[in-house]
Design a protein around this nucleic acid. Sequence first.
DNA 1: GGGCCCGCAGGG
DNA 2: CCCTGCGGGCCC
Length: 493
Amino acid sequence: MAIVAQLPCDNNDVCMKCKVTPPSEECLTCVTCATLWHVECLSCPPQSLASTAQWKCPDCSGEIDLAPVTGSDESGLVAAIHAIEADQSLTESEKAKKRQELLSGKGTDDDEKTNGDNENFKCGICFGDLSKPVSTPCGHNFCLDCFNGWVKKNKYTCGTCRTKFAQTVANNIRINLTLVSAIRLSTLPERASAAPPQIQHYIRNEDRPDEAYRTDRAKKTGDANAASGRIFVTTAPDHMGPITAEYDPERNRGVLVGDWWKGRQKCRQWGAHFPLVPGIAGQSKYGAQSVVLAAGYKDDVDNGDYILYTGSGGRDLSGNKRTCKVQSWDQTFTKSNAALQLSCRMGYPVRVIRSHKKKNAYAPEKGVRYDGIYRIEKCWRSIGEQGVFKMCRYLFVRCDNEPAPWTSDAHGDLPRPLPHIPELKNAVDLYEREESPSWDFDEAEGRWKWVKAPSASVKRVHDMHPKERKMRKKSAEADKKKLLKGLHIGPQI
DNA sequence: GGGCCCGCAGGG
DNA sequence: CCCTGCGGGCCC
């Protein structure tokens, strides 16, 4: 049975159903969400003039069919998550649990907590049900009309907690569409909550559960088919070097050498290595942040303090039938290989993760482990294991202040001496550091540290909507150019 | 233990 | 928007 969705007018006051711009007398404004609706296109227009003043649109009144709300950025799921966040009767861990239950599709027994009588859906001024809800920076909610009446009397304090806010806040106050969605959800009939949650493709980092979860598209179980859980650290995705306590607001501890996780998902969530499958995290024009040593390339040599690492390309995941398992073309210094090359030339620090799949004396027994900071001293191309194709090769040397998690290599020289590498004789495209290293050993302080940090991060936060990210990318690039011009530092080659 | 398949995230 | 990519559960 096809259900014809009821649609409001768009931002240009054009009815999204009949595509005409109706005159204002043929329009109704919803008392809850303040959207404009074309009366002729409503399936149940209000019967009396009096009822138009308190008219609620089909979305807000709950009379609508249970088809997903169209024309809204917020799905029911996201609204429900926000409703959980807003519930002050819950502790942080209870909220996290509820988020996870919601995302895994499990219902809870006390779902009615988010129902109509929820105090968070009452206006702090008139104490009635919120109509056109707005929110102050301190997190309290009011009807738009009540709020405007309040600030008209030059009261720039919150009506609930008396926290002061700037006059500009009052001038720029907007209807809280998230709250509108939450109110809509709470007023839906009970069968609505029994309907499968409408999973939205993009979920902000703060709204993600602590554990990896399966989206509605995942047909198989397990982390391999799961979406990422919340990122716990505040480092930008392209943050280089150690993750110190300042980036770890939850534990105030940071990620320490020897930290171990069961799988790549948790390793990502703690910021050690972001990509879930690829072994190299990096951007060709910025540098590399981290690498994973797992199985995959037989040419790899792991000697603990130094590593001969192979770049990516020309091959794919072992056991993935989409592509061939053997090397079938030359690797080049492009993409993530170029990122490692750039880090080599600039002397940037790279985080190294060891996986148990690379079975040797330095690997963890299971899972993945953060083994500290390394620097790429040389990179070159040489003929790989099959004797045919050129592979990108990198010499990693450990330069971390913390002792390594393994004990088999006892020498304590700092900085580590470079090993002799016979294959360098046959290397093509040899690259060595061109600048004095950005991450170097300070003899006076007796530790490794930044001498010259790379230029400003390209990406700033994890929880950015893809659209927003695209917008910001342009301005960030412009900022970066300016910064580079001013400071004469950064990854320019 | 190897092959298969799925699907996420992100670079370009 | 396309395609890659050193995961990982499960089946044989």
